[in-house]
Simulated assay, not measured.
Amino acid sequence: MSKNTTRFCYSCDLKDDPKLIAEYKKYHAAGNAWPEITKSIRDAGIVDMQIYLTGNRMFMIMEVDETFNPEKKAEMDANNPKVQEWEQLMWKYQQGLPWAKKGEKWILLEKVFQL
């Protein structure tokens, strides 16, 4: 990515159910995410987003530009009915990490090593 971007990494768990995990992956397969969701991601200053999965643990990597602000993104999402509909749907598949606060999904990861 460009030198003018910042990387954020997050983690969240899926419910440990192969059927639900398969459905979640289908929602996130290329071209399947709702266009309103991908637009809201881009509109927030996120220039690249990738989600990786092992077992039922997910890792999300976001590259953001200088316009990105996590609090502003949260406010934008709270005021976007389509994003709220998507988030409600995703709770069917997701569950908070064991140490997450109630209702908290994606937890910011601490960087502990860099080469």
Score class of each variant (00 low, 15 high):
D65G: 03
L89H: 04
M58C: 11
Y10I: 12
R42H: 12
T67P: 06
R7F: 10
P81E: 04
P81R: 03
A44P: 05
R57E: 00
A22S: 12
I107C: 10
F8Q: 03
E23K: 01
L115I: 14
R57M: 02
I21F: 04
G103V: 02
Y52E: 13
N32P: 05
G31H: 02
T67W: 06
M60T: 12
K105E: 08
E36R: 10
A30M: 14
A29M: 00
D48V: 08
Y10R: 12
K73D: 14
K92W: 02
Q114E: 07
K102C: 11
K25G: 12
T54M: 15
E71D: 15
Q94S: 01
E23L: 03
W34I: 04
K92P: 05
S11T: 10
Q94K: 00
K39G: 01
V112C: 04
L89G: 03
A22P: 09
D43C: 05
A22C: 09
C12W: 00
Q114V: 06
N80V: 05
S2N: 09
T38D: 04
M49H: 03
N80L: 03
K105M: 08
E75Y: 13
W34K: 03
E36Q: 11
Q88L: 13
V64D: 06
W91N: 08
Y10D: 10
Q94V: 00
N56Y: 00
P35T: 02
C12Y: 01
M62E: 01
K102E: 15
D48Y: 06
S40R: 01
G45R: 04
V47T: 02
G103F: 01
P98A: 10
M58S: 09
T38G: 04
L108G: 05
K102L: 12
M49Q: 05
Y10M: 14
L14G: 10
G103N: 04
D17F: 01
E110W: 07
K111R: 11
L109D: 07
E71K: 15
E87G: 12
Y24A: 01
V47A: 01
Y27E: 10
I21N: 05
A74C: 12
L97Q: 01
W106V: 08
K26A: 15
F59R: 06
K92D: 04
E75R: 14
M60Q: 13
L89T: 03
M62V: 03
M49L: 08
T38F: 01
L115M: 14
A30K: 14
K26H: 15
A78Y: 02
S2A: 11
A33R: 13
